[in-house]
Amino acid sequence: MRSFSQAERSVINALNAHISRNEEVSLTELAGECHVAKSTVVKTLQRMGFRGYQEFSYSFRLSRDVQRGSLLPRDVVVGSGTTAARELASVFLWCAGRKSIAFSDGKCLAAPLAQYLARKLALFDILAPASYDYAMVDAARAEPGAAFFFIHRRDAGVGHGYSGVGEGMLAAVRDRGYRTVIFTDTDDASVTSYADVLIRIADNAEPDIDLYATKVLMVIERALSEYARLREEVRDGDGLS
């Protein structure tokens, strides 16, 4: 399949410039702007998979504003969402200047969730790399912060117990003085008993639609918002003292 020609690329670039400025542009205007025939514009769009200019203009007919209200679950955690967010935010505050870990073991959901948390915390200058390495929890050079675990009921029975836990990792981080935060939708005491902070994710309203990961992200986002507020309060307090 051949690449786009110079003329086709100029049409695409001009289209993108208009789109990024939220401008609608007619076929005639676009052809004039790019110094090409209208047929060149149409052929370019056809090469991109559209039947013509009109179909291109309407290509967002399926793009509807998917309202958060109807897409995101209402019940995110068991108990108060505000309390869970504040509790997690206070852990983030504890983590500032310490070394934390987002535990990414397991081939299921723990890895993407740990990476999400690690990336977001890094935006707030909190070091909590996503890792499954035991050497990570050796806090010889830095004060131990928190260890975050993502334990999904769906993964029960994968490998040793729950995927995402890791053999002995829960015990290891506790022994080394980390605060253990567990995001889980299970009540299994073999998991929950390790938690200093237990974020108990609510069960799915529709059993066949698994929103565990969605809910974890929602808790994290809300806690980050709380943390930003807390951090400002602490800074203001420092400034006053």
Binding site: L72, E221, L224, Y227, A228
Partner: peptide, 19 residues
């Protein structure tokens, strides 16, 4: 970042994909 508000874009995308 200093007045961070929850951004549920990724959570919404995950919920959508699950559906």
């Amino acid at each position: 970042i200093d007045s961070y508000e929850p951004n549920h874009f990724a959570a919404g995308a995950l919920a959508f994909l699950e559906r």
